[in-house]
Design a protein around this nucleic acid. Structure first.
Lengths: 218, 218
DNA sequence: CTAATTTGTTAGTTAAGACTAACTTAATAC
DNA sequence: GTATTAAGTTAGTCTTAACTAACAAATTAG
């Protein structure tokens, strides 16, 4: 099995390669807060273990094996988050740090039990998909709220780039998954949106916020 | 905070010093499966951190601080075991390994929540006392089943020196905490006991087994 | 009470995973 | 298209926590 450190490299590689499919040493270094030479070294070790394709001066690419192992760690993370929220009563802004630790626990039984008790959930408390036991996962085709137009009626499906602070911000405005929102207007100069939902008849959301809210139109 | 490794030394020191109050380097070395020089080294580091009293060639003694920190790790371990059994449906023979990992998690909130959901339990699934939030804990004055006499009626209060195998052995005989047992006879040559409980009218338990069962007389 | 054995320590080595300093390759700018 | 800047690598160091080999102290045996 892999060390906790390797698991963190795997997760970072997986997260950063979402779009391009590859990652630079620099990006990985910044994301993990680890200096570049250390990253280079680790990539050589992980290449030897067939977790990543590594060639000098070229972008890093996860192997199939690396991707699967990363996805399985993410599975453990998201299952844990869901468990903490659904079964233990934590708020969605409290669970990240705990899950960050529990995801490294070696006990297939523990996570199998969580999945069972949660009735095999497909999404975590932030709307992110939970990879299945084979590491398979797919994001649904959500739009960003920031890309919607006035008069669109949308439902909040997921929150991305979550931080505790951002989630607390949403809490204060009673914004949660499943919430139905109507877009009243978009300010042209800063792309902030005025939206309406529940008893919030005129809430303004900055573009920074809108870019982090994934929605389903309906 | 302390490293996972230090936490394991603390736990081992605490467990081994139960009776004598002190531990030899040798015992600690054997218990942790770590060679003596490594232990000596670590003791110096931990003495510097005021977790243990260390003098060359003298027995190791936990400081008050060391004892408290050890007890708090044991608290996390036993709370976790209780949580896994009571809230997740694990068997008492399955929880040790998982708790061994979860006990190192840094999240006061997580363990506070477990305690709350379990309604502040005083004992773990094996009958061992759970230290309170200040690290205070006390074993009740139980007897070993091996020290009981024929015709004694006793109730199983705790299981000590538990291993998965021993707990499975108890499962197969339907022996569990709270079970009421009558001692029918004691074989003088090997101190094995013939006992009666529930629909087990004549079950023989070896001395090895009886020494690991703590009971309350009634 | 000395000899043998056990226990404990010292010194030096190793591996993992971090770092800095210095150098090289690749990318960008003019 | 060369010069500058950014990115990546190499080499060497550090810390933690393990190890072995060799030595020293304490205990036990006779």
């Amino acid at each position: 099995m892999h060390s906790l450190v390797e698991e963190n490299y795997l997760k970072a590689l997986f997260a950063l390669s979402k779009d391009k499919g590859s990652v630079s040493v620099n990006d990985l270094s910044k994301h993990l807060n680890i200096k570049m030479p250390t990253v280079t070294n680790m990539m050589k070790k992980m290449a030897f273990k067939k977790l990543v394709y590594y060639e000098s001066y070229k972008p890093l690419i996860l192997t199939k094996k690396g991707k699967k192992e990363a996805a399985l760690i993410i599975r453990k993370h998201r299952l844990t988050e869901m468990y903490l929220v659904e079964k233990m009563g934590f708020g969605w802004e409290e669970v990240h740090n705990i899950a960050e630790q529990i995801e490294h626990i070696k006990s297939p039984k523990l996570f199998a039990k969580m999945a069972e008790l949660l009735d095999y959930p497909k999404f975590d408390p932030h709307g992110a998909p939970i990879p299945d036991i084979n590491g398979e996962m797919e994001w649904k085709a959500y739009s960003k709220l920031s890309e919607c137009k006035p008069d669109d009626m949308v439902k909040i499906a997921a929150v991305i780039n979550t931080t505790d602070e951002f989630l607390k911000f949403l809490n204060r405005r009673e914004i949660h998954l499943g919430l139905k929102i109507k877009i009243k207007s978009v300010e042209p100069f800063d792309n902030s949106m005025v939206v309406k939902y529940k008893n919030h008849l005129e809430e303004t959301l900055s573009n920074t916020v809108c870019k982090r809210l994934l929605v389903e139109k309906f």
